[in-house]
Design a protein around this nucleic acid. Structure first.
Lengths: 342, 342
DNA sequence: ACAATAAATGTAAGCGGTTACAGAGAAGAA
DNA sequence: TTCTTCTCTGTAACCGCTTACATTTATTGT
């Protein structure tokens, strides 16, 4: 069932059918009705590829993420997909894993799908070796690239992220003000935002007058159990009275450590985690967590993208140049729950 | 940069370029090299739409799910997407929400994208009113529809799901054998698998010789807090000594109720949840949970789909008819942790 | 009633590939 | 050398749509 079949059945030209399905205003009511009746009768759905070929845009955004089952990314995908669809855009999702070659392959695949833009969700897309980011920089010459919580400096690459540095600084400061003397920071992944968070911890320490050498920053693996064990080992070395975790997942590991160790929360030990995902509330006791404002980040990402992709037109119908900020930083918010005394 | 540009630059015809990029074997080494060199130099990526138009299949599967941020669905999406991509297929994701009209619109959208098949992830796609499933049944006449944890009886619709009934029956039985006298079942969503689970509870009760009227089955909202409150209210009415929850989310609500109420887990109250997602381990204490074997379910879904889409060929190159089971049921496994005495 | 103008419709040329088919060249056989 | 056969390459039609432009039909004013 294609446009020819419909045009034949309706007794009009394919151009008229095209006009009807695209809601053009220069079609007579009679024609529109004839065509719509036939379409309803046969249940015709226009072929999006042919459409895209014909008009040069598929109204499709390519979303890359490392692992859609990660709760943070799962939320991001949901917000992005929903928001884009509201704007008439579809999304193609690629879960790339963490391997550079797979990421590149996915990027190519999305290119072949003629996506109008890329969204790289999560900060895993900034490689330590700048040369490894080249494929993104090259891609950005053809299509806008939006980085959610990542940041690469290049033309056509836009970044919207939460203020991880500020968020961590606030967490540290609050903890310190509530009487914490010995704070340990646990994290589990190196990435762009991972670095920002550490900077935030450092900034907090500085503000609180805590010397660099007294700062304890430890790296563990991703699972609850591993984080709990790591903290156990660290506690053996030297006790601490507060834990800041780089994610809610790590925060839960911290809770498990405290419970195993029979430390009372928050009397003996305070815990602050990051992201304020559903996990923070799932924990018992519920985690005090820095809300990374993911929904807002995603929404601003879409807004900016829509502006880029659908620039306002001048009186002659020419696209006006739009300028959107290369970086947008969204303020975080500390959400107080049961694992802290403040 | 299109196939004409490449053919011009390489000094060959577009047919030769096409052959090279498709790995045809009837191209001379010389030609292949010329073309590949040009492609590498200019970084050409074939337009997938034009390709799909030309050959009638886009090697794309449409995945529908209600809400990708749901931890269960997020995992399903990850497994499906990864598995499909391994088989050379891409996926387009639609988060449809729970509204029938949106679901239909998404289905149409995927049709317009010429997907080779549909995967409906999650059991929300089976409506109570059979007439409302018609759009799926109609769609299945053109393309295979795989339902992950749902089941509609019709040609072209295949279902792979976990044995929710059996899983719940086992949970009930085990709880009963470990001394539970008063078991309450909490759930939070009506759906195909929701019904299966209740049937399982009933079957368990029957097996244990518990009369229908002593069965307590209550429905709550989705959030941890709501489930906890609901249980609180029920406990006021009449105490119970065990909780079975329809999901890990509800299980966490149950834990919160128990902790708030100062009931010791598992001495005073036992809890079994369902899915065995990361949430089960995130809980403190960790939840005993029925593993729904989601990964296996997804993998079997992809396997079946690949068989359907790429049937074996006979000596004349004609597709042989393949028959795959209309329903596949995957056995669940009770994973014992800290919220039960067994 | 008729020209001038506006509105509706149709024609045909792309969009970027695939592929059946024909044609050219090279290699082998007689 | 000439005819066959086989391998490689190119031409052109097609996939299903959009859209600029040409053409037809309807509307308006005088």
């Amino acid at each position: 069932m294609n446009i020819y079949d419909i045009s034949k059945a309706a007794g009009v030209s394919i151009a008229s059918v095209s006009r009807v399905i695209n809601g053009a205003d220069n079609v007579s009511e009679k024609t529109r009705k004839k065509v719509m009746d036939i379409i309803d009768e046969y249940g015709y759905t226009p072929n999006a590829y042919a459409r895209g070929l014909g008009r040069g845009s598929m109204k499709t955004i390519g979303i890359m993420c490392s692992d859609s089952s990660d709760i943070y990314l799962a939320n991001a995908i949901y917000y992005l997909e929903t928001d884009l669809r509201k704007n008439g855009y579809n999304s193609i999702l690629c879960c790339t894993g963490y391997d550079l070659e797979t990421k590149k392959a996915s990027f190519d695949l999305l290119k072949s799908r003629q996506v109008d833009a890329f969204i790289l969700a999560g900060s895993k897309y900034v490689e330590k070796d700048p040369a490894d980011n080249q494929y993104i920089i090259d891609g950005a010459r053809e299509h806008p690239v939006m980085m959610v919580n990542g940041c690469i400096e290049a033309d056509g690459i836009y970044s919207v992220r939460s203020d991880d540095k500020g968020g961590m600084k606030e967490a540290f400061t609050q903890l310190h003000e509530s009487g914490a003397k010995k704070i340990i920071y646990v994290y589990s992944s190196d990435s762009f935002s991972g670095e920002q968070k550490i900077e935030g911890i450092r900034a907090g320490a500085k503000k609180c007058g805590i010397p660099e050498e007294n700062l304890r920053i430890v790296k563990g693996k991703k699972s609850y159990g591993d984080i709990a064990e790591l903290l156990e080992a660290e506690y053996e070395k030297e006790a601490f009275d507060s834990i800041i975790a780089s994610s809610d997942t790590s925060g839960i590991g911290a809770v498990k450590f405290a419970v195993n160790h029979k430390l009372r929360i928050p009397e003996d030990i305070q815990i602050v985690s990051y992201n304020n995902s559903k996990l923070a509330e799932a924990s018992t006791p519920e985690l005090t967590s820095v809300d990374a404002k993911l929904e807002e980040v995603c929404q601003k990402t879409c807004d900016a993208l829509m502006k880029l992709l659908n620039p306002p037109l001048d009186e002659n119908g020419n696209a006006l140049a739009v300028s959107i900020p290369a970086r947008t930083v969204v303020k975080t918010k500390l959400v107080k729950r049961a694992t802290t005394r403040f």
